[in-house]
Computed example of a mutant assay.
Amino acid sequence: MRIALIEPDLRHAKLVGRLIFAGGHACQHFTISSEFLTRAADEFFDLLITEGWTGDRSAEDVIPLARSILPGLPVIVLMNEPRESQIVAALHAGADDCLAKPVRGPEMLARVDALLRRAALRRPTTRRRDVISGYSFDATQFAVSFRDQTVSLTPKEFRFALLLFANLSRPVSRAHILENVWSRGRDVPSRTVDTHASRVRSKLQLRPEYGYCLMPLYGYGYQLDAMSTQPVVESG
């Protein structure tokens, strides 16, 4: 699942990001709410975790704005030594849950999973599209649309591609790929992962001339990067 985190405290954001990643989810970090709201207009998130104060507005103000863009978005609010009045205010504003900072790993992941399960029960059977960086992922057809074309993928290729885009510009380990694409298939041969990466690269045209580069990371996994396609203008 794709989780958005609004957290001005970079140290705590790093901790939460590690926990989310360990829980098998992708985490996109934002330091202020305006950055998140801009991104949410183009991309889908399954859950929002936000600080009580996001750097530019309170969580009570962020929640309705977020849900005006992503209706039904589950929200967890993080608070420093929260008082009862703060928790009540957040819940009245629409928060689904509140957590004290610094978060405790097992508790946070359990609450995240519980919220995602409840959200999945409310989600329509015809799942929405995920749109990430110009690529539209249709999970009902295992198809990806980009640059006025639509490409069909196998289920594993689809999950692999979506995992890479959800972690754009971040390394994705083979263990994480196996966990998400092959459902804990630790005995999957390394060449099978490499073959799927090659097919995804070819089918989705993940090449520098089209603005993307999918590279193997020796001894670790893969990383998908967005690249500038603008020509270099020499001065002089």
Results as ranks from 00 to 15, higher is better:
82 P>L: 07
69 I>V: 14
69 I>K: 10
83 R>Q: 11
75 V>E: 08
79 M>T: 04
67 R>N: 09
56 D>K: 00
68 S>K: 07
78 L>H: 09
71 P>A: 07
85 S>R: 10
85 S>I: 15
84 E>H: 11
67 R>E: 05
78 L>R: 07
69 I>L: 15
66 A>L: 12
59 A>M: 06
76 I>G: 14
53 W>I: 05
55 G>E: 06
60 E>F: 03
72 G>C: 12
71 P>I: 03
83 R>N: 10
54 T>D: 05
85 S>V: 08
56 D>C: 00
74 P>T: 01
61 D>Y: 02
58 S>E: 12
76 I>M: 14
59 A>K: 07
69 I>W: 06
56 D>T: 01
53 W>K: 03
60 E>C: 09
61 D>P: 04
72 G>A: 11
59 A>Q: 07
85 S>M: 11
84 E>T: 13
68 S>Y: 08
53 W>A: 03
82 P>F: 08
56 D>Q: 03
54 T>Y: 07
79 M>N: 09
57 R>T: 04
64 P>K: 00
72 G>M: 08
63 I>H: 07
68 S>T: 13
58 S>G: 08
52 G>K: 10
55 G>D: 01
80 N>I: 13
75 V>K: 09
63 I>W: 07
69 I>G: 11
72 G>W: 08
72 G>I: 11
84 E>F: 12
56 D>G: 00
79 M>H: 12
54 T>V: 02
77 V>L: 11
82 P>H: 13
69 I>Q: 09
80 N>T: 03
75 V>C: 13
75 V>I: 09
67 R>Y: 10
55 G>R: 06
54 T>S: 06
74 P>V: 03
75 V>S: 10
81 E>C: 12
80 N>Q: 11
78 L>E: 14
80 N>R: 12
81 E>G: 11
60 E>D: 02
71 P>Y: 04
80 N>M: 06
62 V>Q: 03
55 G>W: 05
79 M>I: 00
52 G>D: 05
75 V>L: 10
58 S>K: 06
57 R>N: 02
85 S>Y: 08
73 L>R: 08
67 R>S: 11
57 R>F: 03
62 V>C: 05
80 N>C: 11
55 G>F: 00
77 V>H: 06
